[in-house]
């Protein structure tokens, strides 16, 4: 009997504790697996908690998990949605279900394939079609199988799927082995390649701390044309790779904050502030470099950044 009473008490305590934790977070910010999103997430967290007194939590997840969390009400903010990369998720939740809202102004971003500057200078590899040249592709061959190797992103990134399409369309899918891995591994590979002056090609995007750490350059590509950009979503067509074609540069991309439509009811000031936040390339680069390269803890950096940018945040808070 005593045991049963104890069990009930323990269970009740657990329920109270769990509900307390659940209640503690007014806003949950999802953090996908790349560094600039991590930096932005912590800055947004600091802004919402310091300006509005909200309890804000952060939680890691894939893009799909974060969007689904926003849809279901378990998460409230995605700090960095890339368009067009996340167009399918955007269309589903922002345009379709209307459970998520895209902040109006995005940060312009760039993405493509990069090489180290020394690779471009020593081997004359400056254009993306150089990767389709079997002889030039061998420059990147590390296992003597006649194919080069290049990192194209993490396996759960939307851009990785599109890089596969682009590799097929340009032709370097036949001359280069396309490798998927965590970004940390790829960044360390760049560090090591630069250290011994080894040629390297890899997917890259800006803003990113990489450009402050190493001399890397984008490979030249034919400009983006909507007529030449046919990217089929695997959810719509299992033959997506065969039916896609994109032998042109990425369109100019934009990074947006996405937040839950329910915030307008539950925390309207938070929703208003999130819609008003205006970051830019320099800010995102600065934040990422400080956290990733200088090793400043994200929470510490965010606290200082919010202090140093008080007027800017005031303007966002006052925006109509």
């Amino acid at each position: 009997m005593l045991k049963q009473i104890c069990r009930v008490i323990v269970l009740a305590c657990g329920v109270v504790l769990a509900s307390g934790i659940a209640r503690a977070a007014d806003v949950v910010i999802g953090i996908p697996s790349w560094s600039s999103a991590d930096a932005t997430a912590h800055v947004v967290k600091e802004i919402l908690s310091s300006r509005l007194g909200l309890d804000v939590a952060v939680k890691t997840g894939t893009n799909e998990e974060i969007f689904a969390g926003i849809d279901q009400g378990t998460m409230h903010v995605h700090p960095e949605v890339w368009l067009p990369n996340h167009k399918a998720l955007h269309d589903k939740y922002v345009l379709g279900r209307k459970t998520a809202i895209l902040s109006e102004k995005g940060v312009p971003a760039e993405q493509g394939i990069c090489v180290t500057r020394r690779t471009a200078e020593r081997f004359g590899i400056r254009k993306i079609e150089d990767l389709s040249d079997p002889e030039k592709a061998k420059t990147f061959d590390t296992n003597q199988d006649g194919l080069g190797e290049m990192w194209i992103g993490d396996s759960d990134w939307s851009s990785t799927r599109i890089e596969k399409i682009r590799a097929k369309s340009y032709g370097h899918a036949k001359t280069m082995q396309l490798l998927e891995a965590q970004e940390t591994v790829a960044m360390a590979a760049i560090d090591a390649a630069v250290a011994v002056d080894r040629p390297l090609a890899f997917y890259c995007y800006a803003p990113h701390h990489l450009f402050s750490l190493h001399e890397v350059v984008f490979l030249q590509e034919p400009p983006y044309s909507p007529l030449s950009w046919r990217v089929v979503d695997p959810a719509d067509d299992p033959q997506w790779l065969d039916h896609s074609q994109a032998a042109v540069a990425w369109p100019t991309s934009f990074l947006h904050i996405v937040y839950s439509a329910k915030l307008a009811d539950t925390h309207p000031k938070a929703a208003k502030l999130l819609s008003a936040i205006r970051l830019d390339v320099d800010t995102v680069s600065e934040m990422t470099y400080a956290i990733v390269v200088d090793g400043i803890p994200a929470a510490d950096f965010a606290r200082q950044w919010v202090k140093d940018n008080a007027e800017r945040i005031d303007a966002w808070a006052a925006a109509k």
Partner: peptide, 22 residues
């Protein structure tokens, strides 16, 4: 050796291609 990286001191990076451990 000079080694620019975002990794923290104490991290080990193994480059099997060049047979180096950093």
């Amino acid at each position: 050796v000079p080694f620019r990286t975002a990794e923290k001191p104490g991290t080990i990076i193994i480059d099997g291609v060049r047979h180096f451990l950093y």
